[in-house]
């Protein structure tokens, strides 16, 4: 399944559920830790749970409808859009956010981003890097077309040429 298809599948899943599910998840696995959730309705998007309840503000809000990718995190290794993913659907799965991608910015994608001076304002870059990291895990030698399809996140500053180069550089590094 392509990343886009995954997103759509999750979206459909989410849409079929009631808007007001109030059974309350007690814990969530984020970045290798089991964190307690207090009074968070299951229907709350994972994005806002991470940001407002757990204080992990690295993951960004951009559109709320899975159009921009700024909120991308990994759930069991797969890139998903946390703005349309209900926390109740996470269950026991492992969530990885930018805060857990590496301890010190040493993931090959982060290093490539720094080498190519990718960020301008930097706001969307967390989502971009999470998308790239998942893409490269699945395919460590993406073609230009595969990068274009895989790196669908929006950047309003227009860092796409740098992102393209950084993904290629990270791929090289990850193949080593």
């Amino acid at each position: 399944m392509t990343l886009r298809a995954t997103v759509v599948a999750i979206q459909n899943l989410t849409a079929s559920k009631s808007m007001h599910r109030y059974s309350v998840m007690a814990t969530i696995n984020v970045n290798g830790k089991v964190l307690e959730l207090k009074d968070v309705p299951d229907s709350t998007p994972l994005l806002w749970v991470l940001r407002d309840h757990l204080g992990l503000t690295g993951t960004k809000y951009g559109c709320g409808v899975s159009e921009c990718g700024a909120c991308t995190v990994h759930v069991d290794g797969e890139a998903i859009q946390s703005c349309i993913t209900e926390v109740g659907d996470i269950g026991e799965a492992n969530v990885v956010t930018i805060e857990g991608l590496s301890e010190d910015g040493s993931h090959p994608v982060q290093k490539a981003w720094a080498e190519h001076n990718v960020p301008q304002c930097g706001y969307c870059q967390v989502g971009q890097m999470m998308t790239a990291a998942a893409l490269l895990k699945e395919n460590n030698d993406p073609s230009d077309e595969e990068i274009e399809e895989g790196m669908w996140n929006i950047c309003r500053c227009g860092t796409y040429p740098r992102i393209r180069e950084a993904v290629k550089a990270a791929a090289k590094e990850m193949k080593k």
Binding site: T57, I98, A114, P119, Q125, V126
Partner: peptide, 19 residues
């Protein structure tokens, strides 16, 4: 020179208005 906020941006620690 690399931008001042590079590391914070790349590790999700940069503070924007929403944060």
């Amino acid at each position: 020179a690399p931008i001042t906020d590079m590391k914070e941006i790349l590790t999700g620690k940069a503070v924007f208005g929403i944060d």
